[in-house]
Simulated assay, not measured.
Amino acid sequence: MPTSEAIRLPSLTPGTEHRLLKHRFGSGGRSAYIQAGLHADEHPGLLVIQHLLSRLVALEAEGRLDGTIVIVPFANPVGLGQQVFGQMPGRYNLANGENFNRNFPDITGSLEQAIDQCALEKNDVAVFKTLFAAAMDMPPPLEAVQANKYWLLQEALNHDILIDLHCDTSSILHIYANHDQRQRALDLAAATGVEAVFLEDEAGGFPLDEAYAKAWKTLHRRGLVDTAHLGFSATLELRGQADVEDDIAAADAQGILDFLQHEGLISGEPATPLRHERIQVYPLEGVSHLKAPGTGIVAWKKRIGEAVTRGELIAEIVALDLAPGAARQAVTSDVDGILVARHHIKLARSGQKIGMLAGTTPLPGRQTGKLMGI
C-alpha cells in the first residue's frame, strides 16, 4: 500500500497553512521522484499525476514495483492560492516577483568540501545520496516559498530520477535535459511521444532540475560516477496550458510509466520498444525567442510544430492605433527549425516574447548559463 505524508510550510498569514503532499509507492531498489504544478498556472501535469497515482496503486497491488516511486501531486501550494480577480498568476511569486522555478538552493560548495574530506568509491550511489542529504542538513528557510524550494530539492536528491512536469502557454510536447544524460532524455522522449529534446550544460536561473543535475555533475566531474549511474533530471513540457484533457493525460501518464519500466522500476514486458527515429535534439543555445516588433494583435502565419526557415514569415503584428490601411509589422524566423511555442494571448506589447523557435545550430549571443527566460 502507498504511504502518504503532509509537509507543513511556514505560515504566510495568521490563520492560514500551506502543505505539500507526498505519496510513496514501492520500496527499495532505484527510485524516481515526479512532481507537477511548480508553476501553479500550468495544469496539464496536475491531471497527469492523478492518472499516475491510480496506475501506481494498481501496479503496487499487482506486485510489479521493483523500485520506489515518490509523487508530489502539487509542488507549489502557495502559487495555487494566488488569485487576482479570479485569475491565477502562478508562474511568479506575487510577494517579490520571483519565478517559482528559479533560485533553488545550491549545495555544490558543501558537496565539494565533503568530497575532499572522505574516501569515496566510484558509483557508490547510496553514499552519494548521503552526501547530498548532509549538504542539505541545514535549518529550513523561515519563509514559505523558500522553504518549499528547500523541501522539493531535498526530496529530489533522494532519488535516481527526477521528472518535473510543466507546460508552455501553447506548445508541442518537448523536454529539457542535460547533455550528460542525452540517451536517457531520448528514452523519456520516445516513451512519451516527444519529438523535440533540448539539451544544455547549464541553462541558468537555477531551476529545480538544474539544482539536482549540478549536484550529480559535481561528482561526475570528479570521476566518481559514470553516466550509467548518474542521477537523471528532466523537465517534461506537456504542451500548452489549455491541454488538460483526460485522454491526453492518461496517455502521458502511461508514457511516463513506460519510461520507468524501461529504467527497471516496474516489472513486466514493455508494451512497445522505445523508438528514437522521429526525435530531434536541439541545443538550448539554438532556441530563439520571438519578440513583437510593435504593439498590437498577433496574427500567426505558422502553427506550433510546423517547420520554419530563416527569413520566413512567422507572424504579423496588427497595430490598433495607426491610420486605416497601415502596413502590418512582420515577425520572421532567424533559424531553420520548428515553431515550438506560441503565446496564447494575442494582444502583444512591443518587445514582448510571443513565441519560441528551435534550430539545430547555436545562435550568436546565446550564452551557457543565461539560456532561460524569466
Rank of each mutant, 00 (worst) to 15 (best):
A323H: 12
E269G: 05
P139W: 06
F100R: 00
L363N: 06
S27D: 10
D164R: 04
E195H: 15
Y282H: 11
E62G: 02
T309V: 13
H166L: 08
L94M: 14
L290Q: 06
A135Q: 03
I256W: 00
A58M: 06
K129Y: 01
N178W: 13
G359K: 01
S267F: 07
E112I: 08
L59E: 00
H23D: 15
A215Y: 02
I314L: 12
T218Q: 08
P140E: 10
D226N: 13
I161N: 01
F85T: 04
I7A: 10
I266W: 05
T192W: 00
R221F: 13
G86H: 02
E98L: 11
V244W: 10
K122V: 15
E285Q: 11
G231W: 03
Y212G: 07
H39P: 04
L53R: 13
E312Y: 09
V335M: 04
R303P: 06
H276T: 02
T13H: 15
L290D: 02
R91A: 03
I345R: 12
G365D: 07
L59H: 02
D247R: 13
Y282L: 00
K122M: 13
R102V: 04
V335K: 04
S333N: 04
P140W: 11
H220A: 14
L371R: 04
G359E: 01
G204L: 09
K353I: 13
D187Y: 05
A228H: 10
V197L: 05
G90I: 01
S31R: 09
A292N: 03
L65A: 03
I297H: 14
F128G: 07
A134F: 06
G109D: 05
A341Q: 15
S171C: 13
V308W: 01
G325L: 08
A119N: 13
G255I: 01
G337W: 00
T295C: 12
H23W: 14
